[in-house]
Computed example of a mutant assay.
Amino acid sequence: MGPEILFEDAEALVIDKPGGLPIDRPRAGGPCLEDSMDDLKLGFQRAPVPAHRLDRDTSGCLLLARNPKALKRFAAAFEERQVEKRYLGVVAGELKEEEGTIALSLSKVSTAKDGWRMIPARKGKPAVTHWRKLETRGGLTLVEFRPETGRTHQIRVHAASGLGAPLLGDPVYGSGKGAPRTMLHAAGLTVPRGEKAPIVAASPLPADFLALGFSDA
């Protein structure tokens, strides 16, 4: 059984990527999304190709292009910030404010000891995330994130450094405690396609979010 399909037409698929499943084969081996690509041909000759990235731990909406022309168009839509993305995350802590916008530029750093990570840096690449508090339970908060830009680890760094409350379970920007994965879910995706109807997909809240007592917002 491959991942659930949330949207399908002749040029696109949106799948519900499970949390913890990497898109590409890890160096150490093990399962990855590539294993499902033949099953996702669904009668087409070509296997679909991811049009953007989701971290290994992030669950939810992942857009796949079914031909090279579509891939090029979708990549341009992401690059030009035309794609609407809605994420849900559980942060470790309670937030005083109800909503806001985080604008923290990000830069990549690397050390032999800790490997690479993203840090807020004045000379980094601009990164903007709008957020809204949805629900608080037992010292944890469910937050809606709508990133304007698509920087690597953007929401993870913005939660930790912008909100002062890292995503639950994040081993790099938080304590890594409280959950077996970084609690971030790609809940919705809208991709405009000119005169064609847009690609619209939504992924329900996963079981591990529901297990913390949060409801599907």
Rank of each mutant, 00 (worst) to 15 (best):
148 E>P: 04
63 L>D: 13
71 L>Y: 12
38 D>K: 03
171 P>L: 07
7 F>P: 03
138 G>D: 13
214 F>V: 11
126 P>C: 03
97 E>I: 07
210 L>A: 15
69 K>I: 10
89 G>E: 13
203 S>P: 05
48 P>A: 14
202 A>W: 02
154 Q>Y: 04
129 T>R: 09
27 R>Y: 03
178 G>T: 02
202 A>Y: 09
65 A>V: 08
82 Q>W: 00
62 L>T: 02
151 R>F: 02
92 A>I: 02
44 F>P: 02
180 P>A: 06
115 G>S: 02
3 P>L: 08
174 G>W: 08
136 T>Q: 11
9 D>A: 01
101 T>L: 08
154 Q>S: 08
209 F>T: 14
11 E>M: 03
200 V>C: 12
26 P>G: 12
129 T>Y: 08
214 F>Q: 11
31 P>N: 01
53 R>N: 15
214 F>A: 01
149 T>A: 00
206 P>E: 11
39 D>L: 11
133 K>I: 05
89 G>L: 13
48 P>W: 12
185 H>P: 07
122 R>C: 03
153 H>A: 11
160 A>K: 10
111 T>A: 09
135 E>Y: 06
199 I>D: 00
98 E>Q: 14
88 L>D: 07
116 W>Y: 06
7 F>W: 04
78 F>A: 07
71 L>N: 10
166 P>W: 07
95 L>D: 13
45 Q>E: 15
84 E>H: 02
152 T>Y: 04
106 L>E: 03
100 G>P: 05
107 S>I: 01
128 V>W: 02
140 L>P: 07
79 E>Q: 01
51 A>E: 02
201 A>E: 03
8 E>R: 07
174 G>S: 09
135 E>G: 03
73 R>P: 00
144 E>S: 10
155 I>N: 00
152 T>R: 08
95 L>Y: 15
20 G>H: 14
65 A>Q: 01
31 P>T: 01
113 K>C: 06
14 V>F: 00
186 A>K: 00
121 A>P: 04
121 A>W: 05
176 G>E: 03
207 A>F: 09
162 G>D: 14
164 G>S: 14
139 G>L: 09
34 E>R: 08
54 L>H: 11
157 V>H: 11
74 F>D: 01
172 V>P: 05
23 I>R: 15
124 G>F: 04
90 V>W: 09
204 P>L: 08
94 E>A: 13
21 L>S: 15
106 L>F: 03
205 L>N: 12
121 A>Y: 07
126 P>D: 11
52 H>Q: 14
150 G>S: 01
85 K>T: 10
199 I>T: 01
40 L>W: 12
168 L>F: 14
43 G>A: 11
45 Q>L: 12
82 Q>V: 00
207 A>R: 12
40 L>C: 08
64 L>Y: 13
131 W>V: 03
164 G>K: 10
67 N>R: 12
200 V>D: 06
102 I>L: 04
190 T>I: 02
61 C>P: 13
24 D>A: 15
158 H>E: 12
127 A>D: 04
49 V>P: 07
37 M>S: 05
69 K>T: 15
99 E>W: 06
107 S>V: 01
163 L>R: 13
139 G>K: 14
115 G>I: 03
33 L>C: 09
203 S>E: 07
105 S>W: 03
